[in-house]
Each structure stands twice: as C-alpha cells, then as structure tokens.
Write a protein that binds this DNA or RNA. Structure first.
Ligand SMILES: [Mn+2]
Ligand SMILES: [Mn+2]
Ligand SMILES: [Zn+2]
Ligand SMILES: [Zn+2]
Lengths: 143, 143
DNA sequence: ACACTAATTGCAAATCATTTGCAATTAGTG
DNA sequence: CACTAATTGCAAATGATTTGCAATTAGTGT
C-alpha cells in the first residue's frame, strides 16, 4: 500500500544506498507490502507483469533489495528461493508432506545469538537469523 | 567410514523404508559420513564420479535420503541446495559477504518449539528445525 | 547357487530457475 | 532542459535439477 508507514522506511533505505526509485522497484516493493508472506520471483512477477515489468527485472530487483537488506531469503525447502521483508520478522512451521505453512512470532533467538557471538572468533554481531520448524501436520499424519 | 557407528543406523533406516542398499547409495552415504558439513549435489558427485556413479543417481539418492530422513536441507543462501545428516544436528553462522561458515551446537529451540506446538492448531510435534545466523564477519567488516 | 521381478541405474534429452550481453530508456542531478 | 550513469527489456545463455526409457541389479524365494 502507498499508505503503509513502512513503505517510506524501505524507500529511504534504497535511496540511501544509492539505488534509483524506479517504477518496477516500487511495484515490487508494494507486492511485498501487500502480501505479507514469503514470496518467490514467480509470484512477484505474476503480480507485476501486467504493468510492463520483465521477469529479469524482478530477479534483478530482488537481488538489489536483498543487498540493501530490504528483504531476505527464507528457508522453506521449496524448489525456488523465497523472500520476505526484513522488518516483518517472524518464523514458520512447514509440513514436510503437504507444504502447509503456519507463522509464529515467539522467538528467543536473541539470547542464544548473544551467547554464540561471545564465543565466536570470526563474528562479533548478528545481522539476522533464520529459524524454521519442520513437521508433519495433523492432517497428513492421518492420511 | 565403514566403521562409523552411525552408518548402520542410517542403512537400517533405508532398509526399513524399503529402499535397496545399492552401491551408489552406500557411496553417497559414506561421502556424508566422511565430510561432516553441509554438502550439495555437486560436491557429492565429485566424490563418487570416479566410482562410475552418474550425476542423476546422486540427485535421486539425495531425494531418497531426504524422504527417508537420513539427510535434510540446510539453509545457507547459496545457489544450490545443501544437505547434512539428520543425526549430526548443529547450526551455522554465515557471513553475508564472503560466505564464511562457522558451526555451533548450542541450541535452545526445544523449549521454544514446545511452546509453539502447544498453541498450534495444525501441528502436534516437530520433526526437526533449521536455525542459521547471518552476519558480516570481522574480516569483511574491515575490508 | 539360480531364477524372478520390481526397483534402480546410466545415458541423453528436456525442463525450470536464474543469469548475462547489449542496445534503448530513464531517474536523478545540476 | 540537458547530461550521464543506472536501469530496463528482450533474446540468448547458463546451471541446476528432472524425466523417459532400456539395461542392470538387489532382494526375495526356490
Ligand atoms: Mn520469517
Ligand atoms: Mn546444521
Ligand atoms: Zn501436511
Ligand atoms: Zn566475511
């Protein structure tokens, strides 16, 4: 949404890093703001193709957003790569059989991360983390 | 190694699930037992190609091992998919710049997982989890 | 040990996601 | 409004993974 308060945050990040705010980039950003779940290139492309935006541009935009830390990859064990907005942090339980995804917010990683960092010879801070749970859902357990 | 005590555990799992213990499958299993880190198809193939094992067979074997829960995918944000042995559970800090990987074992997910499960309408137990930390390593922070 | 059969393999070709080269277009600056 | 580097679209290339199919083989039972 154009009126999402987070929209400005992300556009500012992009500007600060020296990226131009082009039409395709704003379109892709809005797809993420309007679909609060992990998205892959194909999903994004289907949403912007009508507006004369090429598939290649989607891929390149995802790369730029990733390097600007506007989005980051989510590990869902699917065939293609999924991304979500950096500031929409949450996690998932994924069914190993049918792919059902449930979100959850509770996350106690920060303390664990501190411990790990304090012992690490190579790292001194964490940028972000990925935590996903995998299971067989109740429905698949019966079938 | 033929003498790794875990080897029998994995071969029993495969037998129980009805998979034949073929030469290529044992070769691939041994590659995982001898290289305790996340491996992709190409790494495995390079280790077994001398022994007349096709790349396709490696891919098919990885699929079978995954469905038998002998290995599972690890999210490292690389171009190809990485796997590790299910019973070698540990986690990673990955440098977003240079790709440096550091292992760590400490993991307090079990309690968190219990909480999540107790509130979930769709899931009643966790099979396994994926937890990776992403950061810029000390070296890359300078350069 | 030998025969049987379904599972597995290797090879070649196909497919799918993602990347690259390049000429045309455009955002941001002054 | 002009300038210029960044960005885009199209077509072709690449790289990973998958599929079809005939030949081979593990596991089962004789
Ligand atoms: Mn998430
Ligand atoms: Mn691990
Ligand atoms: Zn399910
Ligand atoms: Zn680094």
């Amino acid at each position: 949404m154009k009126n999402d308060p987070k929209r400005k945050i992300y556009t500012e990040i992009l500007k600060t890093k020296g990226y131009k705010l082009t039409a395709p980039r704003l379109l892709v950003l809005d797809v993420f703001l309007q679909n609060r779940k992990p998205l892959n290139a194909d999903f994004v492309y289907e949403k912007v193709r009508t507006k004369k935006t090429d598939r290649v541009t989607v891929y390149r935009t995802l790369k730029i957003f990733e390097s600007a830390r506007v989005i980051h990859q989510v590990n869902l064990k699917k065939d293609s790569v999924f991304f979500e907005l950096t500031k929409d942090h949450h996690h998932h339980i994924v069914c190993l059989e049918c792919g059902l995804i449930e979100d959850f917010d509770a996350c106690t990683i920060d303390q664990l991360a501190k411990n790990v960092i304090s012992k690490s010879p190579y790292f001194s801070s964490i940028d972000h983390h990925s935590l996903e749970l995998f299971a067989i859902c109740k429905k698949c357990n019966k079938g």
